[in-house]
Design a protein around this nucleic acid. Structure first.
Lengths: 214, 214
DNA sequence: GTCTATAGCCGGATAGAC
DNA sequence: GTCTATCCGGCTATAGAC
């Protein structure tokens, strides 16, 4: 969280009117944390800036020296989160490896990442539709990029003769759908006391079974 | 749609102040259709009653003689839709059949139902979090009920020796996640020109592969 | 049954004191 | 850098004419 906020400050967004890095980062953290909590609880639209003021411990006027308006805040949250997530995914997959290992690595990385950033993933998914055309486009591109990571691994595996499937696109889409269930239906898995390791292990085996020739 | 609205009228909800069935049903259809369209486009919260007035062709005052307030409208939409969907699913699965056929029947019914009622399914999923405690509970129960339909079929199949899997609950959850992708990511499948039959056929084979012993 | 007009409130945004 | 006070527009909801 601190890493994200520091980067946001240093990116030199002219909407931040604060000069001192330490105070800026500290308050940005309070703001984004509060906004995420409230958005997940009641939805970004339903969250008023007065709610945000109370939850973050800052005043109305102070909020506005960190972002120029409510809509801009939504974009900041989406953008910064996306950059961070994409960075982690790319980092995890940069070393070459055989397709089976790479698939497992990609699945595990995504699940553990969405475990640690569960609120952001949930928020990002649910609020995509409320964004303007250009921002919605970025969200879609991001979804397709993640999906293409899996599609590429599948195709590599097919060439190498270790995977067999009908349609790489559809298979990748199904993998993505199953990954998303982990952060979208968290209440369900919590109630059933399914731990993240259990979910990841199950999913890897489930997918592997579907990837072999009958 | 007409069927749902007529039933809503006849259920004798005292919030409907209109006496003549034909006018009531006609207007209810206009209202629910408009509300669904607007909710899907911009979200239920962001839809104002003035939007609804314009889209439905009725006046502000008239709207209020069909439902007592905006929040009540949300509940009506959720409730009526849920009743209808559950009725169809139960109807489709009432006849006994071997587990393999039953599984296919359940998957197809759900996919084609969510194809025909795509907007309602999308709306219902996205707006669950905005509802009060009691209504949210009903939505969760409904999700678990659908899931249990699949879990029961899986367990029947395991006893009969035709299916083999690690965990019935998790497997059912994964099936549900893949069914949901069809109506949640409709833009994706539309762009790729994946027809509903293609999706259903693919999914059935994909799941079947994951249900056999390696 | 349906309409228009209006009450009353709440949210986003800003000005300017400290 | 942060606060309080205030403006203004849009929202839900209702009253009462037709």
């Amino acid at each position: 969280m601190e890493r994200v906020c520091r980067e946001l400050f240093r990116s030199g967004s002219d909407s931040i009117r604060i000069k001192k890095e330490e105070t800026a980062v500290k308050n940005l953290m309070a703001i984004l944390e509060a906004a995420l909590n409230l958005s997940v609880k009641k939805g970004f639209d339903a969250m008023s800036l007065r709610d945000l003021q109370a939850e973050s411990g800052l005043s109305m006027g102070c909020l506005y020296s960190y972002f120029p308006g409510k809509e801009a805040l939504l974009h900041i949250m989406q953008d910064q989160g996306r950059k961070f997530v994409m960075g982690i995914m790319a980092e995890a997959l940069e070393e070459p490896a055989p397709p089976e290992e790479k698939l497992e690595m990609a699945i595990r990385t995504h699940i553990y990442l969405s475990e640690n950033m569960q609120k952001w993933f949930y928020f990002s998914y649910m609020e995509t539709k409320n964004m303007g055309r250009d921002e919605a486009k970025k969200a879609i591109e991001s979804e397709l990029l993640t999906e293409s990571i899996f599609r590429d691994i599948l195709e590599e595996g097919e060439k190498a003769g270790v995977f067999s499937f009908e349609d790489a696109n559809l298979t990748a889409a199904m993998i993505k759908a199953m990954l998303q269930d982990w952060y979208l239906k968290r209440w369900k898995y919590k109630n059933r006391q399914i731990h993240v390791d259990e979910y990841a292990n199950f999913l890897i085996r489930f997918i592997r079974k579907a990837l072999v020739q009958p």
